[in-house]
Design a protein around this nucleic acid. Structure first.
Lengths: 285, 285
DNA sequence: CTCATTATGTAGTAAATTTACAAATATTCA
DNA sequence: TGAATATTTGTAAATTTACTACATAATGAG
């Protein structure tokens, strides 16, 4: 059953080709679609001013097996039609509205990213990380926090992992790199000069350069492998950067990829790391 | 009727609190949600191995007026994009499946959190942050990265902001606190000993203590204001912590709240901060 | 105007859902 | 432990809902 992307539009379009009573049904539904999904065939027939079988015939005409099936398709269509949209926070907002907006924006960013995941690049990055002898995560500003998060995740793979927020350290480490070193650059814009310069320096060595950044940016150009994160329009000035959430999840994906690559025999190692924290916590009462 | 954004997640979460037969129904639905939306109460009852009224009671327990209404909500929920509940990554997964799973888990976590936002606590925390003379963000491990992110966000409010990952620094700073100081503790479990101890030390001063952590945890107990983040079941061992994403967005919410509190006259200040970065970037070609 | 065709409604039937109640199971407290 | 009580679950009947077959009404062509 391939349900229509937008059933209401289809109904609207065929309006003139319908019989009198079918048209009445159509109008009743178009007027109050949500209500239609909740009503019985009898009440819909009443509100359209026709008989019940007319409603039933109407449903079959639009590809449904019957009235319940039609309602289902309608509900599905309505739900998927109401897409999340970036909604800016305004000064007229209050505690009941702006938290929801921010969550919606975050969810929206992840949903969008999920649909356009650059799987090839991800697979390649997993390969390269799995083979690396040493991994550096470099970011600045907000991306430094993302890099820190990555460090907390990737050290589990028995590969030395480093993070530095200091651009000078980043430059010097880049300059002294060699075969087996992997530099993972994280940047929202991909245009931050000092970071791009560090990438350039690293590029002149034998090291591998992977970046998580905007497509076509200077940083992307310097990389052996670039995982593109779509940059949202910067229209709303004071919205928090949802891109960093996407970056975090993509790093989760990379870590999961490396774990799978290591194979099932690797799980005891992970379990040991987890267990090592037990004594640092108060036990559940 | 406010239909659930993600009904499956709600069902999943309440699994342990259900009766035997209700749990059977829940599992049947979680196993084949799409099918459930198309089947009659009789066939669903049969495939769950329970009686029809049990299915009906199950539906009512989840806020539906009856079985048809439940199916409708389920269909709506499925259509809205995120189809699956906490799905563990397995060693049989490949590049086409596990990235989607991880994104779904992340989206799911945010949607769930959005539904149960502790607005009162958030409003209070905004008040307290807005009034603070100095703010410390303390976290350890993954939460240290979250604290770092918070630092990058809150310094904009003209209030000195500090982060420290070092437990000893955290203790000493806590001990030397006074009126106007605000300690913001971030912890997934709320049970990490050294962090709870730091909170306890801070509590003995005149400082305000806000925490972003699990409800009822030792850390929550030490706080003047606790923003609860539901802790997901730790069933799947090697799933990444989605709670940190929720924490980040909640910190975004707090920052937005403080911005709104500062009022419209504050925007030039924010704009100046933003502009200050311009020269650090390569211009768009 | 009549016949053929299509459209619509009526009434009966089958199916699905819900309710009321009784049996079975679990829980509490002596 | 065992009786008393509460909770859970299923049975069966009632009710609601949807569908089918058929009859009537409307429309259009010749």
């Amino acid at each position: 059953m391939t349900s229509e992307p937008n059933l209401l539009a289809v109904i609207q379009r065929q309006l003139n080709e319908l019989n009198k009573s079918e048209a009445k049904v159509a109008l009743a539904i178009l007027n109050a679609p949500e209500e239609a999904t909740r009503s019985s065939i009898a009440s819909l027939a009443a509100s359209a001013g026709v008989s019940e079988p007319s409603v039933n015939r109407f449903c079959k005409r639009f590809g449904a097996t019957g009235f319940p099936d039609f309602k289902l398709q309608l509900a599905t269509s309505l739900a998927s039609g109401v897409r999340y949209v970036s909604r800016a926070v305004e000064f007229s907002d209050d505690i009941n509205t702006f938290p929801t907006k921010l969550f919606d924006n975050a969810i929206n960013a992840l949903m969008t990213a999920k649909e356009e995941l650059p799987l090839k690049a991800i697979a390649r990055a997993v390969d390269q990380i799995a083979q690396a002898r040493r991994v550096y995560f470099f970011g600045l500003g907000t991306s430094a926090a993302v890099a820190r998060d990555a460090e907390h995740k990737f050290f589990r793979f028995n590969v030395p992992v480093f993070t530095h927020e200091d651009p000078l350290m980043q430059r010097m480490l880049a300059a002294s790199a060699g075969v087996g070193d992997l530099f993972f650059f994280i940047s929202h814009t991909g245009r931050t000069k000092v970071l791009v310069e560090a990438a350039e320096i690293a590029r002149q060595t034998e090291a591998t350069i992977v970046s998580l950044t905007a497509e076509g940016s200077p940083l992307a150009d310097k990389s052996h492998c670039c995982i593109n994160v779509k940059v949202e329009e910067d229209t709303e000035q004071y919205l928090p950067m949802t891109s960093r959430l996407v970056q975090l999840v993509i790093l989760d994906v990379l870590a999961a990829g490396v774990t799978l690559r290591r194979g099932e025999g690797f799980t005891p190692h992970l379990a040991r790391i987890k267990d090592s924290l037990k004594d640092t916590r108060f036990q559940t009462s």
